[in-house]
Simulated scan of single mutants.
Amino acid sequence: MNEYYTNNYTKYCKDVKFDFFDSYDFLFIFGRSISVVIIPIDIFGMYCIIKKTPKKLKTKGCLMYLQSLIIFLDILLTLCMTPYVYFPTCSGFTIGIFRSIGFPMIFQCFIAIVGISTLNFAVPIIFENRHNILVRSNFKITRKCSRILFYLFNVTLPFFCQLPVFLHIPDQIPAALEVLKRIPCPTIEYFQQPIFTLTLKYDVAMFSLSTTLFVAFIQILFFSIHSFYHLRKISNFASVKTQKLQKAVFSALSLQISVSTAILILPIFYFWYAFQFNYYRQGFTNISFLMIASHGCFATVTMLFCHKNYREYISSFFCKKKPRIDGLHSNTPSFQRTNISVQHVEPIRF
C-alpha cells in the first residue's frame, strides 16, 4: 500500500479534487447530527404504536416489529457504524462506536447487511397482516402454522440470501490492492484508515441484493393488489364505520411504505449505476448512506401523521381544549340570573 501511494497515487492522482462531501469529516458530522433528530422521533413513534394503537386494529405487533427494526438500523448506521464505503467496490471502514470498542469489521458488515435485508422483508409481513383481515375468500393464509412458517420465512431468508457474500472474504492486503485497480484514485483516507474488503466477487453481492429485493417486492405486490381489490368489496360484509377505518388504515400504511421506498430509490439506483459502469464519486456514496440511515425516520413521520390516532395524540400537545365557560355550567338557575340582571337595571327617567 505504501509503495502504491508513493509511486502511483502521489503522481497520477494529484489533479483529482475532492470536496467536503467526499471527506471523512462530512460523514462523521452529519451522521452524528441527524442521529440527534431521527432517533428520538423513531422512539416516539414506537411509543405511539404501543400506547395509542387501537386494539381493534390488529396490526400492533407487526407495526412494533417494523418500528423496532427502524430504530435498530438508525442507531446502527448513524452511531454504531457510520460506514465509509468505496463504491463501486465492497471496501471501506467505519467511524462509529463499534470501531472505538474494537468490534470486528466482518461482524459489523454482517449485522448491517442482514439488518437492512430484514427490514426489507418486514414490509410483506405487515401487508400480509392487512390482507388476512380484509380478504374474505379462501385465497389467503388461514392456518396458524402456515402463518408462522410465512413469518419464519421472511425473518430468516435475509440471513440465507446474504450468506454467500460472507463465504468469500478475501485476504485483506491483496484485496486492498485489487480494489485500487477499479478505483485508482480514492480519497486519501484509503491509505490512512484500516480498510476492510468484504468481497471481490461483485456478481455474488449483486445477486444476493437483487434476490432480496425481488422476493420482497413480489410479496408486497401480491398482498397490496389483492388487498386493494377486496377493499373495494368490503361494503358487502362491513358497516360504514368499519369500511372507513379499514380504508384509512390501508391508505396510511401504503403511504408510509411508499415514502420509505421513495427515499431509497435514489441510493439503490446510484449503487446499481456505480457497479454497472464502474463509477466512483465518494460524495454521492456518503450522501446515499445518510439517506439510507434516515429513511426510517421519514417512514415514522409519515406513520405519525397518516394514522388518525397518532395524529390526534400529537395535535393534543399543541391544541389543548379549553374548558367551556357559559351560562349552562353555572349553578344559578337561568330564571334567577335573569331576575338578578333585571334588578340592576336602572329605570329610564324622562
Rank of each mutant, 00 (worst) to 15 (best):
L200W: 12
I220T: 02
F72V: 09
F214M: 07
I38S: 15
P104E: 07
I41N: 07
P323L: 13
L177T: 06
A262P: 04
M64H: 11
Q336G: 05
K52N: 06
P333T: 14
Y273T: 12
G327P: 07
Y273L: 14
S235R: 13
A122V: 06
R311Y: 08
R311A: 14
S260T: 15
I41H: 02
P194Q: 08
F103C: 08
V155E: 09
F275R: 08
I292C: 11
P186A: 03
L264M: 03
M206K: 02
T156C: 10
T82M: 12
K201C: 01
I141L: 15
F103E: 05
F237L: 07
Y190C: 02
I97W: 14
D42R: 01
S208G: 05
S258A: 15
S227L: 12
L119D: 10
I34G: 11
F335R: 04
A248L: 14
L79W: 04
E189M: 05
Y4G: 00
G61D: 00
F269A: 10
L57N: 04
S239C: 00
R136P: 09
A238M: 06
Q276N: 15
P164F: 11
I116K: 03
P124Y: 03
R281T: 00
V179D: 12
S235W: 14
R99T: 10
L255G: 15
T187F: 07
D22V: 08
Y279G: 06
Q219M: 08
A238R: 02
A299E: 09
Q67Y: 13
S91K: 12
I38L: 14
P333Q: 13
F107K: 02
Y151A: 06
F110R: 09
H295I: 01
Y4N: 10
A299R: 13
S100V: 04
P267Q: 00
L152Q: 11
T302F: 00
T187A: 07
V135I: 10
V16T: 15
I234K: 03
T53I: 09
V123P: 01
R349H: 04
L177P: 05
P88V: 08
I29A: 11
T211H: 01
K320D: 02
I225A: 10
T212A: 00
A238Y: 01
K308S: 13
V204N: 04
F107P: 00
H329Q: 07
N129D: 05
